[in-house]
Design a protein around this nucleic acid. Structure first.
Lengths: 122, 122
DNA sequence: CACCTGTATCGACAGACGTCAACATAGACA
DNA sequence: TGTCTATGTTGACGTCTGTCGATACAGGTG
């Protein structure tokens, strides 16, 4: 195995059925469980910076060495990238010496839609 | 005092300057700190359900008694609502016997914009 | 092969977090 | 005033989380 299927829930269907627009109706316990997992992944400053660094990097992907300047140790960086990967927000691929991470667009689209709806409501 | 200024940062400016579109450039440590606080608030299943319940309720606001059926004790509900309030996602107002919570649209708009940009990038 | 660099894993630790029971407070009403 | 309901606060408990140093693994280079 390589970098595949860390979070099986996210592979077959791109989180589309995970969450209603958040203002449409109260979320069920299961829906909340899935959605909260994604928000939680972005709920840490270091992870958010790492994610932003990958997302803003040329081509939407970046080598770890390009983004690991966030003020924590290398094991901590690795740990956070793993968390982001498990949440389905990033995917990784080894190319020679370096490992490249890239953003997973479908999951983000789902989260964005969730919040965009909520903003319109009130 | 009543329900005012739990998070002073969010009062004067509606979090608009808090975050660049997340794909534009790597977030700074300070930006990440502010943004992560909001994501973290939605990173718990119970909080997400409470928030969704408020957001989807008629008029964008709800009494605690209407939304407290999420499977945890009353103190826990109160605790989570406080967290959401501190994160700037909800505001509360007492009207007679009941306390009403309502969604804070500006903050959500900022978060939605953050993610929508990221989804388009990759 | 040995050695070096880049990245992941392990083990440990302090601090944060979610949860509850008990208690406190606010308002309505008699 | 007293009592009842609705909500918030406190204190305690176990668990999760972020962090690091030490170590292991992968791949390139000599």
């Amino acid at each position: 195995m390589s970098n595949a299927k860390v979070l099986p829930l996210l592979e077959p269907e791109p989180v589309a059925p995970c969450c209603p627009p958040l203002t449409e109706r109260p979320m069920s316990a299961d829906e909340a469980e899935v959605a909260a997992r994604m928000f939680k992944a972005l709920g840490d400053p270091v992870r958010l910076r790492l994610f932003s660094a990958v997302a803003s990097h040329e081509g939407g992907e970046a080598c770890v060495c390009d983004i690991s300047d966030v003020g924590v140790s290398q094991p901590t960086v690795s740990h956070h990238l793993k968390k982001l990967k498990e949440a389905g927000l990033l995917s990784s691929e080894r190319r020679g010496t370096w490992v490249y991470y890239r953003v997973e667009p479908s999951v983000l689209a789902a989260m964005g839609a969730l919040l965009a709806g909520a903003a319109k409501a009130a």
